[in-house]
Design a protein around this nucleic acid. Structure first.
Lengths: 110, 110
DNA sequence: GTGTCTCCTGTTCATCTGTTCATATGTTCC
DNA sequence: GGAACATATGAACAGATGAACAGGAGACAC
Protein backbone atom coordinates (compact mmCIF):
# COMPACT_ATOMS: atom_id res chain seq x y z
CA UNK A 1 0.00 0.00 0.00
CA UNK A 2 1.03 3.55 -0.37
CA UNK A 3 1.07 5.48 -3.60
CA UNK A 4 3.42 7.82 -1.77
CA UNK A 5 6.00 5.06 -1.72
CA UNK A 6 5.57 4.16 -5.34
CA UNK A 7 6.48 7.54 -6.74
CA UNK A 8 10.07 7.89 -7.87
CA UNK A 9 12.53 10.67 -7.30
CA UNK A 10 11.48 12.37 -10.50
CA UNK A 11 7.92 12.55 -9.31
CA UNK A 12 9.04 13.93 -5.99
CA UNK A 13 11.07 16.61 -7.72
CA UNK A 14 8.15 17.41 -9.97
CA UNK A 15 5.82 17.73 -7.01
CA UNK A 16 8.34 19.79 -5.08
CA UNK A 17 8.65 22.16 -8.00
CA UNK A 18 4.90 22.55 -8.04
CA UNK A 19 4.94 23.47 -4.39
CA UNK A 20 7.87 25.78 -4.99
CA UNK A 21 5.82 27.86 -7.38
CA UNK A 22 3.23 28.26 -4.68
CA UNK A 23 5.70 28.87 -1.88
CA UNK A 24 6.02 32.58 -2.49
CA UNK A 25 3.42 34.88 -1.02
CA UNK A 26 3.48 37.13 -4.05
CA UNK A 27 3.23 34.25 -6.47
CA UNK A 28 0.60 32.54 -4.39
CA UNK A 29 -1.41 35.75 -4.37
CA UNK A 30 -1.17 35.82 -8.13
CA UNK A 31 -2.38 32.25 -8.41
CA UNK A 32 -5.19 32.89 -5.97
CA UNK A 33 -6.15 36.02 -7.85
CA UNK A 34 -6.84 34.04 -11.00
CA UNK A 35 -8.18 30.96 -9.33
CA UNK A 36 -11.73 31.20 -10.57
CA UNK A 37 -11.83 33.67 -13.40
CA UNK A 38 -9.24 34.92 -15.90
CA UNK A 39 -7.60 38.15 -14.78
CA UNK A 40 -5.49 40.57 -16.84
CA UNK A 41 -1.94 41.31 -15.73
CA UNK A 42 -2.62 44.95 -15.08
CA UNK A 43 -5.50 44.21 -12.78
CA UNK A 44 -3.41 41.73 -10.84
CA UNK A 45 -0.68 44.29 -10.39
CA UNK A 46 -3.25 46.80 -9.23
CA UNK A 47 -5.04 44.44 -6.86
CA UNK A 48 -1.81 43.06 -5.44
CA UNK A 49 -0.21 46.50 -5.28
CA UNK A 50 2.93 45.37 -7.11
CA UNK A 51 4.52 46.35 -10.39
CA UNK A 52 3.32 44.79 -13.59
CA UNK A 53 6.86 43.72 -14.35
CA UNK A 54 7.03 41.64 -11.23
CA UNK A 55 3.68 40.09 -12.00
CA UNK A 56 4.86 39.25 -15.48
CA UNK A 57 8.02 37.65 -14.13
CA UNK A 58 6.05 35.39 -11.85
CA UNK A 59 3.51 34.72 -14.55
CA UNK A 60 6.29 33.39 -16.72
CA UNK A 61 7.22 30.84 -14.08
CA UNK A 62 3.62 29.89 -13.50
CA UNK A 63 3.03 29.48 -17.20
CA UNK A 64 6.12 27.37 -17.65
CA UNK A 65 4.86 25.01 -14.98
CA UNK A 66 1.44 24.79 -16.64
CA UNK A 67 -0.12 26.10 -13.45
CA UNK A 68 -1.59 29.10 -15.24
CA UNK A 69 -2.94 29.48 -18.71
CA UNK A 70 -2.71 32.65 -20.76
CA UNK A 71 -5.51 33.94 -22.93
CA UNK A 72 -5.07 37.02 -25.06
CA UNK A 73 -8.00 39.39 -25.47
CA UNK A 74 -6.97 42.34 -27.51
CA UNK A 75 -4.19 44.22 -25.81
CA UNK A 76 -4.71 42.44 -22.54
CA UNK A 77 -3.59 38.97 -21.51
CA UNK A 78 -5.81 37.10 -19.11
CA UNK A 79 -4.43 34.43 -16.84
CA UNK A 80 -6.33 31.65 -15.14
CA UNK A 81 -5.50 28.49 -13.24
CA UNK A 82 -5.50 25.76 -15.83
CA UNK A 83 -5.20 22.70 -13.61
CA UNK A 84 -8.35 21.38 -11.99
CA UNK A 85 -6.42 19.44 -9.35
CA UNK A 86 -4.36 22.48 -8.41
CA UNK A 87 -7.45 24.64 -8.26
CA UNK A 88 -9.23 22.11 -6.07
CA UNK A 89 -6.21 21.70 -3.84
CA UNK A 90 -5.73 25.44 -3.53
CA UNK A 91 -9.35 26.00 -2.62
CA UNK A 92 -9.09 23.29 0.01
CA UNK A 93 -5.86 24.65 1.40
CA UNK A 94 -7.21 28.16 1.57
CA UNK A 95 -10.16 26.85 3.50
CA UNK A 96 -7.77 24.87 5.66
CA UNK A 97 -5.69 27.86 6.73
CA UNK A 98 -8.83 29.94 7.12
CA UNK A 99 -10.40 27.49 9.54
CA UNK A 100 -7.55 25.28 10.78
CA UNK A 101 -5.80 28.26 12.23
CA UNK A 102 -7.69 27.71 15.48
CA UNK A 103 -7.86 23.91 15.78
CA UNK A 104 -4.18 23.28 15.09
CA UNK A 105 -3.47 23.85 18.77
CA UNK A 106 -4.37 20.30 19.75
CA UNK A 107 -0.68 19.29 19.99
CA UNK A 108 0.28 18.51 23.62
CA UNK A 109 3.66 19.27 25.17
CA UNK A 110 5.91 21.85 23.81
CA UNK B 1 -16.48 32.24 -5.10
CA UNK B 2 -15.29 34.00 -1.99
CA UNK B 3 -13.10 31.89 0.25
CA UNK B 4 -9.95 32.47 -1.78
CA UNK B 5 -10.66 36.16 -1.82
CA UNK B 6 -11.58 36.35 1.81
CA UNK B 7 -8.24 35.19 3.17
CA UNK B 8 -5.94 38.00 4.24
CA UNK B 9 -2.28 38.49 3.57
CA UNK B 10 -1.36 36.69 6.78
CA UNK B 11 -3.21 33.62 5.63
CA UNK B 12 -1.53 33.78 2.26
CA UNK B 13 1.86 34.01 3.91
CA UNK B 14 0.97 31.12 6.19
CA UNK B 15 -0.14 29.02 3.26
CA UNK B 16 2.93 29.97 1.27
CA UNK B 17 5.14 28.92 4.14
CA UNK B 18 3.38 25.59 4.25
CA UNK B 19 4.12 25.10 0.57
CA UNK B 20 7.66 26.26 1.10
CA UNK B 21 8.29 23.44 3.52
CA UNK B 22 7.16 21.02 0.88
CA UNK B 23 8.95 22.71 -1.98
CA UNK B 24 12.24 20.96 -1.39
CA UNK B 25 12.72 17.49 -2.86
CA UNK B 26 14.71 16.37 0.15
CA UNK B 27 12.21 17.79 2.59
CA UNK B 28 9.29 16.49 0.59
CA UNK B 29 10.87 13.06 0.61
CA UNK B 30 11.12 13.27 4.36
CA UNK B 31 7.48 14.24 4.69
CA UNK B 32 6.43 11.50 2.28
CA UNK B 33 8.53 9.00 4.19
CA UNK B 34 6.56 9.57 7.36
CA UNK B 35 3.23 10.16 5.74
CA UNK B 36 1.48 7.08 7.06
CA UNK B 37 3.56 5.67 9.86
CA UNK B 38 6.08 7.21 12.28
CA UNK B 39 9.68 6.76 11.11
CA UNK B 40 12.87 7.26 13.13
CA UNK B 41 15.42 9.81 11.97
CA UNK B 42 18.09 7.21 11.31
CA UNK B 43 15.87 5.19 9.05
CA UNK B 44 14.92 8.29 7.09
CA UNK B 45 18.56 9.16 6.59
CA UNK B 46 19.24 5.61 5.46
CA UNK B 47 16.27 5.37 3.14
CA UNK B 48 16.85 8.81 1.68
CA UNK B 49 20.62 8.30 1.46
CA UNK B 50 21.40 11.58 3.18
CA UNK B 51 23.17 12.49 6.40
CA UNK B 52 21.24 12.36 9.64
CA UNK B 53 22.27 15.92 10.36
CA UNK B 54 20.56 17.14 7.24
CA UNK B 55 17.48 15.15 8.05
CA UNK B 56 17.44 16.64 11.52
CA UNK B 57 17.78 20.14 10.13
CA UNK B 58 14.81 19.66 7.88
CA UNK B 59 12.92 17.93 10.65
CA UNK B 60 13.35 21.00 12.78
CA UNK B 61 11.72 23.16 10.13
CA UNK B 62 8.93 20.67 9.63
CA UNK B 63 8.34 20.46 13.36
CA UNK B 64 8.29 24.21 13.77
CA UNK B 65 5.55 24.42 11.17
CA UNK B 66 3.53 21.67 12.89
CA UNK B 67 3.71 19.66 9.71
CA UNK B 68 5.43 16.80 11.49
CA UNK B 69 5.00 15.51 15.00
CA UNK B 70 7.83 14.01 17.05
CA UNK B 71 7.35 10.98 19.24
CA UNK B 72 10.18 9.66 21.34
CA UNK B 73 10.50 5.91 21.78
CA UNK B 74 13.56 5.18 23.86
CA UNK B 75 16.56 6.71 22.22
CA UNK B 76 14.87 6.97 18.86
CA UNK B 77 12.58 9.77 17.78
CA UNK B 78 9.78 8.90 15.43
CA UNK B 79 8.29 11.49 13.13
CA UNK B 80 4.90 11.40 11.50
CA UNK B 81 2.71 13.80 9.59
CA UNK B 82 0.47 15.36 12.19
CA UNK B 83 -1.91 17.25 9.96
CA UNK B 84 -4.79 15.32 8.45
CA UNK B 85 -5.40 17.94 5.80
CA UNK B 86 -1.76 17.97 4.78
CA UNK B 87 -1.67 14.20 4.69
CA UNK B 88 -4.78 14.10 2.57
CA UNK B 89 -3.51 16.80 0.27
CA UNK B 90 -0.13 15.13 -0.08
CA UNK B 91 -1.69 11.78 -0.92
CA UNK B 92 -3.83 13.48 -3.52
CA UNK B 93 -0.93 15.40 -5.01
CA UNK B 94 1.24 12.31 -5.16
CA UNK B 95 -1.52 10.57 -7.01
CA UNK B 96 -1.85 13.61 -9.23
CA UNK B 97 1.78 13.63 -10.32
CA UNK B 98 1.75 9.84 -10.58
CA UNK B 99 -1.08 9.97 -13.09
CA UNK B 100 -0.38 13.32 -14.69
CA UNK B 101 3.07 12.14 -15.60
CA UNK B 102 1.62 10.03 -18.40
CA UNK B 103 -0.59 12.69 -19.94
CA UNK B 104 2.02 15.39 -19.57
CA UNK B 105 4.19 13.64 -22.13
CA UNK B 106 1.93 14.73 -24.97
CA UNK B 107 3.85 17.99 -25.15
CA UNK B 108 6.32 17.83 -28.05
CA UNK B 109 8.21 20.96 -27.10
CA UNK B 110 10.87 21.01 -24.36
C1' DG C 1 30.47 6.56 36.05
C1' DT C 2 32.08 5.52 31.26
C1' DG C 3 31.28 4.48 26.56
C1' DT C 4 28.30 4.27 22.59
C1' DC C 5 24.39 5.30 19.90
C1' DT C 6 20.96 8.55 18.25
C1' DC C 7 19.60 12.93 17.54
C1' DC C 8 19.93 18.20 17.94
C1' DT C 9 22.11 22.78 17.25
C1' DG C 10 25.30 26.44 15.52
C1' DT C 11 28.19 28.18 11.91
C1' DT C 12 29.92 28.97 7.29
C1' DC C 13 29.67 28.94 2.23
C1' DA C 14 28.05 28.35 -2.64
C1' DT C 15 24.03 29.05 -4.87
C1' DC C 16 19.44 30.43 -5.89
C1' DT C 17 15.55 33.58 -5.70
C1' DG C 18 12.70 37.65 -5.69
C1' DT C 19 12.68 42.37 -6.67
C1' DT C 20 13.62 46.68 -9.20
C1' DC C 21 14.97 49.57 -13.19
C1' DA C 22 15.41 50.06 -18.04
C1' DT C 23 13.99 48.51 -22.35
C1' DA C 24 11.81 45.66 -25.99
C1' DT C 25 7.69 43.36 -28.03
C1' DG C 26 2.97 43.26 -29.41
C1' DT C 27 -1.69 45.37 -30.07
C1' DT C 28 -5.05 48.93 -31.11
C1' DC C 29 -6.33 53.30 -33.04
C1' DC C 30 -5.56 57.27 -36.10
C1' DG D 1 3.93 55.10 -40.10
C1' DG D 2 3.36 56.95 -35.34
C1' DA D 3 1.45 57.27 -30.57
C1' DA D 4 -0.38 55.11 -26.51
C1' DC D 5 -1.38 51.20 -23.77
C1' DA D 6 -0.40 46.49 -21.90
C1' DT D 7 2.74 43.01 -21.31
C1' DA D 8 7.27 40.63 -21.61
C1' DT D 9 12.25 40.43 -21.02
C1' DG D 10 17.14 41.22 -19.39
C1' DA D 11 20.76 42.70 -16.04
C1' DA D 12 22.01 43.54 -11.37
C1' DC D 13 21.55 43.41 -6.45
C1' DA D 14 20.00 42.21 -1.59
C1' DG D 15 18.26 38.58 0.94
C1' DA D 16 17.22 33.83 1.74
C1' DT D 17 18.28 28.82 1.38
C1' DG D 18 20.22 24.22 1.41
C1' DA D 19 24.23 21.47 2.30
C1' DA D 20 28.36 20.24 4.87
C1' DC D 21 31.34 20.40 9.11
C1' DA D 22 31.91 20.45 14.05
C1' DG D 23 30.35 20.28 18.75
C1' DG D 24 26.84 19.05 22.21
C1' DA D 25 22.79 16.84 24.78
C1' DG D 26 19.92 12.77 26.11
C1' DA D 27 19.29 7.69 26.56
C1' DC D 28 20.73 2.93 27.05
C1' DA D 29 24.10 -0.88 28.34
C1' DC D 30 27.86 -2.29 31.07
Amino acid sequence: MGARDRIGEDQVVELAEMFRLMSDPTRLRIILACLDAPVPVGEMADRLAISASLVSHHLRLLRAARLLQAERRGRQVFYVVGDSHIRSMLTDMVDHVAEGDAEAEQAPGG
